[in-house]
Amino acid sequence: MSDVILDVKHLKKYFKTPRGMLHAVDDVSFQIERGKTLGIVGESGCGKSTTGRAILRLIEPTAGEVLFDGEDVVKMSKQRMREKRKEMQIIFQDPFSSLDPRQTVLQAISEPIRLNKILTDRYDIEERTVELMRTVGLAERLINAYPHELDGGRRQRIGIARALAVNPKFIVCDEPVSALDVSIQAQILNLLEDLQDQLGLTYIFITHDLAVVNHFADDIAVMYLGQVIEKAPAEELFTNPLHPYTQALLSAIPVPDTHNRPERLVLKGEITSPIEPKDECRFAKRCLYANDSCHAKCPELAEVFPGHFVACSEWWKRQVQ
């Protein structure tokens, strides 16, 4: 029996806009096993960050269930939620805005410890802070530095230390490397991977960079306009993408070979508006294979191979040979 730590069921987040309801996250369901990483990929505005925040209730979900260790996060009282936040943390995208510019490294990292009264003695708190700094690879001498004195990689390490300070089991990594230089990205990714091994963490890894997620994730969910349109183990998804959107996405990964360029599937057509969408496949307007049935009903995510889910009624016509 698999050990599911997080079970998201029919999660929805709608935003009110003057032109109607914006379906940012529309009926998203997935499970993550303890100690694994789920990568969520998709273009900007597809609802991947909103999904991550709704799971942590940093944004209140409109509907759905988020079972964390069997307990529904959405129904928790504020008090219980604050308790639970110790187990569920988030690492933010932009290390330049995710730290209060007025807090030193010590204050930033120790804040969650002091706030949640994990430790109360000042010496213990500072020693724990130093320990966390070592864990994430920050030199102890930076303890009194302000964020603006540090580079993006170091700031991101502070963000990671801050998330780790409460000893979480589960961390949402919201594009943790996309704001960093490529050379630093690898360091941070390795750090996250090491931490997962050492501390047995479970990750949701939100990104738009497929190379990153291939390296990192056990399972990958591809999102398009608020819906998961394909979900599969990472290797399976890369070798046998079934949804036309996933296929187009994968064909856009640059290949460092000038003689053997794979054919690029270029998407044409308009992006469907996420405001009050019709009951049809949301990708149909850009899909190369769309037919009438695609406009008739929104296809549901169905398991077509063991562990491989796809939301496309015509997937079997286009399997990669």
């Binding site: 942590l56 988030i90 949640n116 963000g159």
Partner: peptide, 9 residues
């Protein structure tokens, strides 16, 4: 950082 403060409760 405001979200971050809420995330730590």
């Amino acid at each position: 950082y405001i979200e971050s403060a809420r995330a730590i409760g």
